[in-house]
Measured scan of single mutants.
Amino acid sequence: ALNRGDKVRIKRTESYWYGDVGTVASVEKSGILYPVIVRFDRVNYNGFSGSASGVNTNNFAENELELVQAAA
């Protein structure tokens, strides 16, 4: 299972961040479909780089994520 702070690569092909590595911000335990919230260094097309207006978190299912580096 994934944990907060883990570095993960995104495998959801239609995602803006496909192939990117993000950090797990939190994992919901309530049984929702996309329980893993991942935070990225770059914002998506809703904002400009360096601006706070873009979105830099997204929810994924565990099977859409590949663990790159476990949290220390």
Rank of each mutant, 00 (worst) to 15 (best):
V36D: 00
G54I: 05
G54N: 04
A25Y: 12
T23C: 11
N56L: 05
N63I: 09
V36C: 04
S30D: 15
N46T: 11
G19W: 05
L65A: 02
D6W: 09
E62Y: 14
V68S: 01
T13F: 13
E14T: 14
V8S: 01
N3E: 09
P35E: 11
A72T: 14
L33Y: 04
I10S: 01
A72S: 12
E14K: 07
F60S: 00
R12C: 05
T57N: 05
S51T: 11
V38E: 00
S26G: 12
R4W: 04
E14P: 05
V68M: 05
F48R: 03
R4H: 07
N59F: 07
R39E: 07
V24L: 01
S30P: 10
Q69G: 07
E62A: 12
L33R: 14
A52E: 12
S51E: 12
Y16I: 05
N3R: 14
F48A: 15
N44Q: 14
Y18A: 04
L33N: 09
G54M: 05
L33V: 08
T13M: 14
G54E: 06
N44C: 15
A52H: 10
Y18F: 09
A25P: 02
S51A: 11
V68P: 01
G5F: 05
S51L: 09
E66I: 09
K11Y: 05
G50R: 00
T57V: 10
I37C: 14
A71E: 10
R12P: 02
S15P: 01
G31L: 13
D20I: 08
V36P: 00
Y16E: 04
S26A: 14
A25V: 15
L33T: 09
E14Y: 10
G19A: 05
A72V: 13
I10D: 03
V68N: 02
S49A: 09
G5C: 11
K7C: 13
G5N: 04
K29M: 10
F40T: 00
F48P: 15
K7F: 08
K11D: 03
V55N: 06
F60Y: 07
L65H: 01
N44S: 06
D6C: 10
V21R: 00
Q69V: 08
R4F: 06
N56K: 05
W17G: 00
V24P: 01
E64D: 05
V27F: 12
Y34Q: 07
G54L: 11
T23S: 04
K11C: 12
Y16R: 03
Y16D: 03
G50C: 15
E66N: 01
R4C: 12
G47M: 07
F48S: 14
L65R: 03
L33Q: 11
A52T: 11
R12K: 08
P35I: 14
E66H: 04
Y45N: 15
A61K: 08
S15W: 02
F40V: 01
A71L: 07
F40D: 00
A25W: 14
S15Q: 01
N58D: 15
V21D: 01
K11V: 06
K29D: 10
T13W: 11
V21L: 06
Y16K: 04
L2I: 09
V38R: 00
G31P: 09
W17S: 01
E14D: 14
S30Q: 08
G19T: 03
K7Q: 10
R12M: 09
V38M: 00
T13C: 13
F40Q: 00
S51Q: 10
D20V: 09
V21F: 04
G47N: 14
I10E: 01
G47Y: 05
K11M: 14
L67M: 05
V38K: 00
T13K: 11
A72G: 14
R39I: 12
V24T: 01
E28L: 15
A25R: 10
S30W: 10
Y18M: 03
V43M: 09
Y18S: 04
A72H: 11
S26Q: 11
A72L: 11
A61L: 05
S26P: 01
S51N: 11
N56T: 07
L2F: 14
I32N: 13
K7G: 00
R4V: 13
S51V: 09
A71P: 07
A72F: 13
A61I: 04
E66M: 05
N46A: 06
G47C: 15
R9C: 11
A25F: 13
T13R: 13
N59S: 12
V36E: 00
E66K: 03
K7P: 02
A25D: 14
Y34G: 04
